[in-house]
Simulated assay, not measured.
Amino acid sequence: MKRIISALSAGALLTFGTLTQAEVAVIVNAASSVAPTQSEVANIFLGKDNSFKAVDQASWNPTKSKFYTAVTNKNESQLKSYWSAMVFTGKGQLLPSVADDAAVVARVSSQADAIGYVDKSTVNDKVKVLFVLP
Rank of each mutant, 00 (worst) to 15 (best):
residue 20 T to I: 13
residue 36 P to D: 11
residue 75 N to D: 15
residue 62 P to Q: 03
residue 3 R to S: 14
residue 133 L to Y: 12
residue 30 A to R: 13
residue 38 Q to N: 10
residue 20 T to M: 13
residue 126 K to V: 08
residue 87 V to P: 09
residue 48 K to G: 02
residue 69 T to N: 13
residue 65 S to V: 01
residue 126 K to F: 04
residue 33 S to A: 14
residue 125 D to P: 05
residue 74 K to L: 14
residue 79 L to S: 01
residue 109 S to Y: 02
residue 119 D to M: 08
residue 121 S to T: 12
residue 85 A to Y: 08
residue 87 V to N: 09
residue 42 A to D: 05
residue 12 A to W: 10
residue 51 S to F: 04
residue 64 K to N: 06
residue 113 D to S: 13
residue 12 A to I: 09
residue 29 N to T: 13
residue 133 L to P: 06
residue 36 P to F: 01
residue 21 Q to T: 09
residue 102 A to I: 03
residue 13 L to N: 07
residue 83 W to S: 02
residue 9 S to L: 15
residue 46 L to A: 03
residue 65 S to Y: 05
residue 97 S to W: 05
residue 37 T to R: 01
residue 22 A to Y: 10
residue 54 A to T: 09
residue 91 K to G: 13
residue 121 S to N: 14
residue 40 E to H: 02
residue 79 L to E: 10
residue 61 N to D: 15
residue 33 S to Y: 09
residue 117 Y to G: 01
residue 10 A to E: 10
residue 83 W to L: 00
residue 68 Y to I: 00
residue 117 Y to C: 03
residue 46 L to P: 01
residue 17 G to N: 10
residue 34 V to D: 13
residue 3 R to E: 14
residue 69 T to L: 13
residue 73 N to F: 10
residue 95 L to F: 06
residue 45 F to R: 07
residue 120 K to M: 09
residue 132 V to G: 06
residue 119 D to W: 03
residue 63 T to Q: 05
residue 60 W to R: 07
residue 63 T to F: 04
residue 75 N to E: 09
residue 3 R to V: 11
residue 28 V to T: 15
residue 133 L to V: 14
residue 61 N to Q: 13
residue 110 S to V: 11
residue 101 D to P: 01
residue 111 Q to T: 07
residue 110 S to D: 14
residue 32 S to F: 10
residue 116 G to W: 05
residue 68 Y to M: 05
residue 96 P to H: 11
residue 56 D to S: 09
residue 121 S to Q: 15
residue 87 V to H: 04
residue 37 T to S: 15
residue 73 N to R: 08
residue 66 K to A: 10
residue 9 S to V: 14
residue 130 L to Q: 10
residue 56 D to H: 08
residue 82 Y to W: 05
residue 99 A to D: 15
residue 53 K to G: 07
residue 26 V to G: 00
residue 24 V to W: 00
residue 35 A to I: 11
residue 77 S to I: 03
residue 66 K to W: 03
residue 105 V to K: 00
residue 130 L to W: 02
residue 22 A to T: 11
residue 12 A to T: 06
residue 5 I to P: 06
residue 40 E to R: 11
residue 125 D to I: 04
residue 16 F to T: 14
residue 21 Q to F: 09
residue 46 L to Q: 07
residue 59 S to G: 08
residue 16 F to W: 12
residue 130 L to F: 06
residue 35 A to T: 15
residue 18 T to E: 08
residue 45 F to I: 00
residue 67 F to M: 01
residue 129 V to Q: 12
residue 82 Y to D: 03
residue 14 L to Q: 05
residue 65 S to H: 08
residue 71 V to Q: 04
residue 28 V to E: 05
residue 14 L to Y: 05
residue 65 S to N: 12
residue 89 T to K: 04
residue 87 V to L: 04
residue 99 A to P: 03
residue 98 V to M: 08
residue 105 V to H: 06
residue 69 T to G: 07
residue 75 N to R: 05
residue 55 V to R: 04
residue 56 D to Q: 02
residue 126 K to H: 13
residue 122 T to E: 12
residue 58 A to C: 11
residue 2 K to Y: 10
residue 39 S to T: 15
residue 32 S to Q: 14
residue 116 G to R: 03
residue 132 V to N: 11
residue 53 K to D: 03
residue 83 W to T: 00
residue 63 T to H: 07
residue 84 S to N: 13
residue 133 L to T: 03
residue 47 G to H: 03
residue 23 E to P: 03
residue 80 K to R: 04
